[in-house]
Design a protein around this nucleic acid. Structure first.
Lengths: 142, 142
DNA sequence: TTATGTGCAAAGCGTTTGCGACCCT
DNA sequence: AGGGTCGCAAACGCTTTGCACATAA
């Protein structure tokens, strides 16, 4: 009934409007990393009167509350639409198949340690980081 | 006289207009990672009649020819303007001071190896990648 | 009830493009 | 001479916002 994200909203003390519930549901159920337009279209099947402005406002709100994570993957040299995913407790990086646009998640501990170490070595503390691997499926033979 | 980038343009067989020479010069001399507007303003001091449309067209052209590298750093959760730098022969990653917006370059071999290894492990070949560390200058004491 | 959220349409911002004039080779 | 390039302004795609109405708490 109440989606995982809706639950998070309650915990954070957000007012729960019908639209927000719908958007929370859509994103709770998303296995991919949908952009605003996709969220809008999926939400529209549950509430045909929802407006895209509300979707923009809501994902932004959720992001500010740390409920969602925003990504700006570069698909063809250019960033196109922002994409969203539930802000997971565990950090992970992204691997993007440039031919299909599919996004895979991965976590590599040595890599994480290295990032912090590099920042420290240069006299900084790591606040955030972004690692995206743009890849192509390996061919067996050429 | 002829800037480094202008030289590269000649080698790649690009037609060298006055505007392109100016933009090549500006970017050859840039120690930072200027955005289009900054390139435009610097170019305008050398050629007051240059238009921003030409700057857009030119950086795009240069990028397509592998002469420039485009970056879309996320400064405040959002990507704002694209920034450019000379496409260096040697690859490097970026470290962005979120308080000043300054960009530093670094290269870490173990990190590079790791990126390729991760992609391979997941059955892909690495085509491109992007690693950005968003950092804050370390305080000596709080 | 009342502060907050919504829908609509218009505006904003970075970037691209159609077009006629202009310039490099 | 002639095809590529330029400047201008209009158009574009994504995102935000002003305003009047609706709604959760």
């Amino acid at each position: 009934m109440t989606s995982r994200l809706e639950q998070t909203c309650v915990e954070k003390g957000l007012k729960l409007t019908g639209q927000r519930k719908v958007i929370a549901k859509v994103l709770s159920e998303a296995a991919d990393h949908p952009d605003v337009n996709q969220v809008y279209q999926r939400a529209a099947t549950l509430d045909p009167k929802i407006s895209i402005a509300t979707v923009y406002r809501t994902v932004r709100l959720f992001e500010e509350y740390g409920i969602l994570q925003k990504h700006e993957f570069a698909v063809g040299g250019s960033h196109g639409r922002a994409r969203y995913e539930e802000a997971d407790t565990d950090h992970h990086d992204h691997l993007i198949d440039i031919e299909t646009g599919e996004v895979y998640e991965f976590l590599d501990e040595p890599l994480e340690k290295l990032k912090t170490a590099i920042a420290a070595r240069m006299g900084f503390e790591l606040v955030d980081h972004r690692l995206e691997l743009y890849v192509r499926r390996k061919k067996n033979k050429v």
